[in-house]
Lab assay of single mutants.
Amino acid sequence: MGFKLLSKLLVYLTASIMAIASPLAFSVDSSGEYPTVSEIPVGEVRLYQIADGVWSHIATQSFDGAVYPSNGLIVRDGDELLLIDTAWGAKNTAALLAEIEKQIGLPVTRAVSTHFHDDRVGGVDVLRAAGVATYASPSTRRLAEVEGNEIPTHSLEGLSSSGDAVRFGPVELFYPGAAHSTDNLIVYVPSASVLYGGCAIYELSRTSAGNVADADLAEWPTSIERIQQHYPEAQFVIPGHGLPGGLDLLKHTTNVVKAHTNRSVVE
């Protein structure tokens, strides 16, 4: 069995187990497998329904001669939608809004960016022009300005110390501490036991640490421990890039980060 097929099978099995364990909360999309990078042309966006009122959005972007996937989250909030992270750029984010209108038909009224990198804030200006209120932590807003990236308009308070959590509509926002970046936030959907790890969490097929220019490698494993301790009931975990899975993604990420750190020390 090929690795790609095995990865998709694991996603399907995880979703099936969740649907059985929580039949009222989960209505997993039966329309197909989780979209992969090879299936999404740059400039297009796919939506994948995880649970009743919960979707991931998947886009792709060219970077350094390669094409990478990027995940975000959409959560229903009454007759409105909360968006977590842009679709990595203005063109993708405009396509995301169009796809949401086509498939869901509810307005996106608020959006949260989970850290300051372009795959999370690139497209904020498109959201703002569409009347979406954009939010991020003060740290993310400051770092985005320093980096020359787009800056969300509103500040999220109460997320300055490791372990801080605040309720934001249908989700809980959690600051686990520094990891992929010093400002990275985690998003949890309690009604569906869905954990969105953003770039602080890796997919299972990833074996290298990737972009760690703004990471705190020493603190990252401790931050992941905080996530595990705060959300032990999480059933569906979405990484910032690639295929979702279960809580095993947290341990896998820790292993990859520690291996990278150990290699760096040896070198």
Score class of each variant (00 low, 15 high):
Thr222Ser: 13
Glu157Ile: 13
Leu250Gln: 01
Glu150Cys: 00
Ser181Cys: 02
Thr14Met: 05
Ile238Pro: 04
Gly32Val: 09
Gly105Leu: 07
Thr140Gly: 03
Ser31Tyr: 14
Asp214Ala: 06
Ala209Met: 06
Lys4Phe: 08
Gly123Met: 04
Gly148Ser: 10
Ala19Phe: 15
Thr93Ser: 06
Glu203Val: 05
Ala209Asp: 08
Pro41Gln: 13
Val28Leu: 07
Lys258Asp: 13
Arg142Met: 12
Leu10Asp: 13
Gly148Phe: 07
Arg110Lys: 12
Gly197Val: 04
Glu147Asp: 09
Ala59Ile: 10
Val166Cys: 04
Arg263Ser: 13
Arg46Val: 10
Ala51Trp: 07
Leu47Ile: 11
Glu172Gly: 03
Val67Arg: 15
Leu243Tyr: 15
Val212Met: 07
Arg141Asp: 03
Gln235Gly: 09
Asn262Arg: 11
Leu47Ser: 02
Ala165Phe: 13
Arg263Met: 15
Arg142Ile: 12
Thr86Arg: 01
Phe168Ile: 09
Trp55Glu: 00
Gly148Trp: 05
Leu127Val: 03
Ser30Cys: 07
Val108Met: 03
Ala19Val: 15
Val265Tyr: 10
Glu33Cys: 06
Ala144Ser: 11
Leu13Gln: 08
Glu101Val: 10
Gly43Cys: 05
Pro152Asn: 00
His252Pro: 02
Asp248Arg: 08
Val265Ser: 12
Asn71Asp: 04
Gly78Gln: 09
Gly122Leu: 05
Arg142Phe: 13
Leu156Phe: 06
Tyr196Trp: 03
Val166Ser: 07
Pro239Asn: 02
Phe116Leu: 05
Leu97Arg: 00
His180Trp: 01
Val112Lys: 04
Leu159Ser: 03
Val237Gln: 01
Phe63Ile: 14
Thr253Glu: 00
Thr254Glu: 14
Thr153Gly: 09
Thr60His: 15
Ser31Asn: 10
Leu195Lys: 01
Ser27Asn: 07
Asn184Asp: 05
Val256Ser: 02
Asp118Phe: 04
Leu106Gln: 14
Ala133Val: 13
Ser56Trp: 15
His57Tyr: 06
Ser7Lys: 09
Asp119Thr: 00
Leu195Glu: 00
Asp79Val: 10
Thr109Trp: 06
Asp29Phe: 07
Pro23Asp: 11
Glu39Lys: 13
Val121Gly: 01
Pro170Gln: 09
Ala66Met: 14
Thr140Trp: 02
Val67Trp: 11
Leu82His: 03
Gly65Phe: 07
Val37Thr: 13
His252Val: 02
Gly65Leu: 08
Val42Cys: 06
Ala66Trp: 04
His241Thr: 01
Glu39Asp: 15
Arg226Glu: 04
Leu156Ala: 04
Arg142Gln: 13
Arg120His: 06
Thr207Phe: 09
Thr182Gly: 11
Ala25Trp: 14
Ala213Ser: 10
Trp55Tyr: 07
Gly43Val: 05
Leu9Pro: 11
Glu233Pro: 04
Ala192Leu: 07
Phe26Asn: 09
Leu127Pro: 04
Gly78Ala: 08
Val237Met: 01
Ile186His: 06
Asp77Cys: 04
Arg120Asp: 02
Asp183Thr: 01
Leu217Ala: 06
Glu80Pro: 03
Thr60Val: 15
Ala144Glu: 03
Gly242Tyr: 04
Ile151Cys: 02
Ala51Cys: 04
Gly2Arg: 10
Ser223Tyr: 03
Val42Glu: 14
Tyr34Gly: 15
Arg142Glu: 13
Phe116Tyr: 08
Gly198Ala: 07
Gln235Val: 11
Glu44Val: 10
